[in-house]
Write a protein that binds this DNA or RNA. Structure first.
Lengths: 104, 104
DNA sequence: AAATTATTAAGCAAAAAAGCCAAAAATATT
DNA sequence: AATATTTTTGGCTTTTTTGCTTAATAATTT
């Protein structure tokens, strides 16, 4: 397991829209599985599954409180990488815009 | 195709060790397919495939020079996101270290 | 135009991941 | 101990992704 494998694996764990949506939501507010499912309007078992994958990946931490389980980001560096991804996407759409402009 | 889909797709394009290895190599030096394959010691058709996927994803730009094709990063923001991923991994390994320490 | 070098594409089997629903497990409450 | 709420898991099919080798395409050189 070298450096490239570890990085690729991290990106793989981030390569799913539901998981991204969850990370954004948890970036705003720590919360429980069923509450989160409501907030983001996705089905609850899938949210639970996604959360446990992200936890296994070390990206989330959870804590049981009674019959509820509260999840939170393990680090704010996760927000950084999402912002970084956003920057790339913004630049790409800007580039496409420039190309279309040239073609006129 | 909403925001979350776009971000997840970007991460998916980054979720492969060979592609990460290639991005690191191109971060140091623009180069051609076969030269790159030599530098990173990976088989050439696979490198070519990985390059074309990354190009289609907008992460690389290429230019034909004679019978060679030279590839480069489309943006240095790509280095940023790799660094960001590295930060997370470093922190994770630090955390694991701390846990092991506690358990003693 | 034949030979050489460089790049890309085709095709296919094996492995991994996604998506979904229903069922089970954990905890709290009555 | 029965019920209700929250969370997790199982089992299943369908899609994607990988990894590989061989073949095709592009361009250059002789």
């Amino acid at each position: 397991m070298d450096k490239y494998d570890l990085i690729a694996e991290l990106f793989k764990n981030l390569s799913n829209p539901l998981r991204i949506k969850i990370l954004y939501a948890l970036g705003k507010k720590n919360t429980t599985v069923c509450n989160l499912a409501q907030i983001i309007n996705e089905n609850q078992p899938q949210v639970s599954r996604a959360l446990s994958l992200l936890k296994d990946a070390g990206l989330l931490i959870c804590e049981r409180k009674g019959n509820k389980v509260c999840y939170k980001l393990s680090s704010y560096k996760i927000i950084d990488i999402l912002n970084s991804a956003n920057e790339i996407i913004k630049q790409q759409s800007y580039n496409i815009f420039q190309i279309l402009k040239k073609e006129k």
